[in-house]
Simulated assay, not measured.
Amino acid sequence: MTQTVFCRKYQQELEALPFPPLPGEKGQEIQRSVSRKAWEEWQAQQTRLINEKHLNMLDPKTREYLMDQMERFLDNRESDQAEGYVPPAQ
């Protein structure tokens, strides 16, 4: 049976992540409050930001920036977008 979680992004019960996506308390917090759908959307957004902005993942400031953007994205606050990205037609 699939576990569910009340997703902070979508404000509804959705499928939970099967394991914490990050190490430590932060990963456990995300697993308790973010759905699989929201996390997969964040991963796609993060990939676009890294690619379009040519971010260096070895730079601690880059990782801090992405953590901030992740929180903004998951809380439905304004977050940076990859310039020129056009979402696929649905």
Rank of each mutant, 00 (worst) to 15 (best):
M1H: 13
M1V: 07
T2C: 02
T4Y: 07
T4M: 12
T4C: 04
V5Q: 13
V5N: 02
F6I: 10
C7I: 07
C7Y: 06
R8V: 08
K9T: 06
K9M: 01
Q11L: 11
Q12E: 14
E13A: 04
L14P: 01
E15W: 00
L17P: 00
P18Y: 09
P20Q: 00
P20M: 08
L22Y: 08
L22P: 00
P23L: 06
G24R: 08
G24E: 10
G24V: 03
E25C: 01
K26P: 07
K26V: 09
G27R: 11
E29D: 12
E29N: 14
I30E: 11
Q31L: 15
R32N: 11
V34H: 02
V34S: 01
R36L: 14
R36N: 06
R36G: 02
R36I: 04
K37P: 00
K37N: 05
K37T: 09
A38M: 02
A38N: 02
A38R: 02
W39F: 14
E40N: 13
E40D: 14
E40T: 07
E40C: 13
W42D: 00
Q43I: 02
Q43N: 02
Q43C: 06
Q45F: 00
Q46S: 07
R48H: 06
L49C: 02
I50P: 03
N51K: 06
K53S: 11
H54M: 13
H54F: 12
N56K: 12
M57R: 04
L58K: 12
L58C: 14
P60Y: 02
T62I: 00
T62V: 08
T62H: 08
R63D: 03
R63C: 14
E64W: 01
Y65L: 10
M67E: 15
M67Y: 09
E71N: 07
R72K: 15
L74V: 00
L74M: 06
D75F: 05
D75G: 13
N76W: 02
N76D: 12
R77I: 03
S79Q: 02
D80C: 05
Q81H: 15
E83P: 03
G84L: 11
G84C: 07
Y85T: 12
Y85P: 06
Y85D: 10
V86K: 09
V86D: 13
P87K: 10
P87E: 02
P87T: 05
P88V: 08
P88K: 09
P88Q: 12
A89R: 13
Q90H: 12
Q90E: 15
Q90S: 09
